[in-house]
């Protein structure tokens, strides 16, 4: 790990205060307070259109907040420059429109690009990428074209990209959309392992059952925060019903909306 870290070493990795975004009459995200400490595994759940992805984009500094503040590793999110410290995995971009020829190894190496800047990618960068592929268990697929992989394998590739960059905070936006059920289980097991190794995870996920099972903390959002706390307490609370309206069925082994 490089030693020139300028913030967030003891403080929270993510800190939002009174965060508001959207049209004045109908904010998408309103008065959200959120702190993510190092080592936490925070799952954000909420119905479709509840502002989950918008909140992530605000926290990542991709949008300018209309009110309140968002800080990333101790810096204002919009001005945050140490981008290699944050990894990002979204819904699979190669799924529908992208048929671009690119290998798994090339994608993972992108995680090193913020380190390299305008300079060359070094042998050490490649070693980091190989190591990351080993960690997620797809080293043998390094030279495959990414579009030849399954959805689950592709998501492992994007995790590896974040790990190659030595990210301290991993932000995932509905990463399991379009991934088959069996691979989803393996995907969450992989995340559990990474958290156990010290990675901080902020996850937006539609599968509430998986979040309750795996995350160390649940944030239930529907424009505002309806719940923020322990997953077991969340499962027993009425926050879900309030946030989702009354359409939530509780089924054996999980909660389905």
């Amino acid at each position: 790990m490089s030693g020139s870290r300028t913030g967030g070493d003891d403080g929270p990795l993510v800190e939002a205060r009174d965060l508001t975004f959207g049209y004045a009459a109908s904010p998408v995200v309103e008065d959200v307070d959120l702190r993510v400490e190092r080592g936490e595994y925070v799952g954000i759940v909420g119905p479709n259109g509840s502002g989950k992805s918008t909140l992530l984009r605000l926290l990542l500094g991709l949008h300018e907040a209309d009110a309140g503040s968002a800080e990333l590793l101790g810096h204002p999110a919009r001005a945050f420059a140490e981008r290699e410290r944050v990894g990002y995995v979204a819904q699979d971009v190669t799924e529908d429109e992208k048929r671009m020829p690119i290998t798994v190894a090339e994608v993972v190496l992108m995680g090193r690009f913020p380190h390299a800047g305008f300079g060359r990618v070094t042998a050490a960068d490649r070693e980091h990428a190989r190591e990351a592929l080993r960690t997620v268990g797809i080293e043998h697929l390094a030279d495959r074209k990414i579009t030849a992989l399954s959805g689950g394998q592709r998501q492992r590739t994007y995790i590896a990209r974040a790990l190659a960059g030595e990210a301290e905070l991993l932000v995932l936006d509905e990463p399991t959309v379009g991934v088959d059920a069996e691979s989803v289980d393996a995907f969450f097991d992989l995340l559990d392992g990474l958290v156990a190794d010290g990675l901080t995870v902020l996850l937006v996920e539609h599968d509430i059952g998986a979040v309750i099972e795996h995350a160390s903390r649940v944030v239930c959002l529907n424009r505002e925060v309806y719940f923020d706390g322990d997953p077991v307490a969340f499962a027993e609370s009425d926050a879900l019903d309030r946030a989702y309206g009354t359409n939530v069925r509780r089924e054996e082994g999980g909660i389905v909306t």
């Binding site: 420059a81 990002y88 971009v93 690009f113």
Partner: peptide
């Protein structure tokens, strides 16, 4: 040659490129 990495990142995934500071 100088901007190859940035161009590749933007080409492959615009949002991830923005998160990566491009």
């Amino acid at each position: 040659t100088v901007t190859y990495k940035q161009l590749l990142y933007v080409t492959f995934d615009e949002t991830a490129a923005r998160v990566a500071g491009v």
